[in-house]
C-alpha cells in the first residue's frame, strides 16, 4: 500500500525536521529571502500552466500540491 508508505514517510519527515538544529536567521537579515528569484514558483499561473502541459504529455504527475483540473490530454 503506497498510502501507508506515504504516511510513514510523512511521519519520518516531520520528526526528522523537528529534530534538526538550524540556527534561526534574524528577521532583519531576511530581506534577500523575499527576492522574486527566491520564490518557489516563477509565477502561480505559469506553474499551473506548465504543470498541466507536463502532466498531459508525461506519465508523471504530482508534487506541487493539490491535484485536479480536467483533461486536455490528447
Amino acid at each position: 500500500m503506497r498510502l501507508l508508505r506515504w504516511v510513514a514517510m510523512v511521519t519520518l519527515l516531520s520528526s526528522t525536521v523537528g529534530c534538526s538544529n538550524i540556527e534561526a536567521v534574524p528577521a532583519w537579515e531576511r530581506g534577500y529571502l523575499a527576492e522574486p528569484g527566491m520564490q518557489w514558483e516563477l509565477s502561480r499561473r505559469e506553474a499551473k500552466f506548465a504543470g498541466h502541459v507536463y502532466t498531459s504529455k508525461e506519465a508523471s504527475s504530482g508534487g506541487s500540491g493539490a491535484a485536479g483540473g480536467g483533461c486536455g490530454c490528447n
Partner: peptide
C-alpha cells in the same frame, strides 16, 4: 475519481538560502 494528499516543509538555512522537501500521494 481522484484524491490527493501533500505534505511539505520549508526551512530557512541562511540569510540567502532556503530549502524544502515534500511528499505527495495520489490515487
Amino acid at each position: 475519481d481522484t484524491q490527493s494528499l501533500y505534505f511539505g516543509v520549508s526551512q530557512v538555512l541562511t540569510s540567502t538560502s532556503i530549502v524544502r522537501v515534500g511528499l505527495s500521494y495520489t490515487i
